[in-house]
């Protein structure tokens, strides 16, 4: 595990809106090859945290460093570029285009990033094969839930991001599919050398991560999950 390379460092982030303090001096760091799960009750600020990590909203205080660059200081165009080059995201419902094939959905993210056509399709094919998604002319809408989420993961990885964010990635799946997708998802950091942050309501899913943090009162707290085989918690400070 390459925790010596930090892909995400959140320092003393503060976010307030309409008189409500949602994030209150929050710290978080994630290393390459590491997975972190964040749970918390509804309204605890998980969405806000995701939006801050993506750079869609700017916190009133603190720093967010992704792949060595403080995104809170970037202008819009540079931020778009940095997000495209270093972040991927997996959504609860996949947010794939139902009419496109899995190959097309995956390659689309690369094409929109300016990757040459041959490379985009070749990389997409490799990713989908590795993740066990059938290649063919079947529209994504006609795949199973598990296959759709694998495709969504492939799309998130196509641009070789440093950091992958997942927003309730198993929330729309049933029992065995959920486990299968979770197993696949949490293998991504080690396999692809990126960091993974999963936001979820499901403690069972969160328990698969290297670290399980709980968001409450604007702060992240250890939910009691230690790293397997080390006996210590990894990464940066948690308040």
């Amino acid at each position: 595990m390459e925790t010596d390379r930090i892909v995400l460092s959140v320092s003393d982030v503060r976010y307030e809106i309409a008189g409500r303090l949602l994030l209150d001096g929050l710290d978080l760091s994630v290393g390459a090859g590491e997975s972190v799960a964040i749970t918390g009750p509804s309204g605890s600020g998980k969405s806000t945290l995701l939006m801050c990590l993506l750079g869609l909203v700017r916190p009133q205080g603190g720093r967010i460093v992704v792949a060595g660059v403080d995104i809170t200081r970037l202008r819009e165009r540079a931020l778009n570029r940095h997000r495209r080059d270093h972040m991927g995201m997996v959504f609860q419902f996949g947010e794939l285009l139902p009419e496109l094939t899995p190959l097309e959905n995956t390659a689309l993210a690369a094409l929109l990033s300016g990757v040459p056509r041959r490379t985009a399709y070749a990389d997409a094919e490799e990713l989908l094969t590795t993740l066990g998604v059938p290649l063919g002319g079947t529209p994504t809408a006609e795949l199973s839930g598990g296959e759709r989420q694998r495709t969504a993961v492939a799309r998130a990885l196509i641009n070789r991001p440093s950091l992958v964010l997942a927003d309730e990635p198993t929330g729309a799946l049933d029992g065995s599919t959920r486990d299968e997708v979770a197993r696949m998802l949490f293998s991504v950091p080690r396999q692809w050398g990126c960091g993974l942050v999963v936001v979820t309501h499901d403690p069972a899913i969160a328990g698969r991560s290297d670290r399980h943090l709980h968001l409450s009162r604007g702060r992240l707290n250890d939910a009691g999950t230690a790293l397997p085989g080390t006996g210590s918690t990894a990464g940066g400070a948690i308040r």
């Binding site: 993506l54 165009r77 570029r81 997000r83 991927g88 959504f91 929109l112 990033s113 641009n159």
Partner: peptide
């Protein structure tokens, strides 16, 4: 709306 998340992530509105 279906394409919005991807376009935001890759910073591409031209699509």
């Amino acid at each position: 709306r279906a394409l919005a998340p991807l376009s935001v992530l890759v910073g591409h509105r031209g699509v």
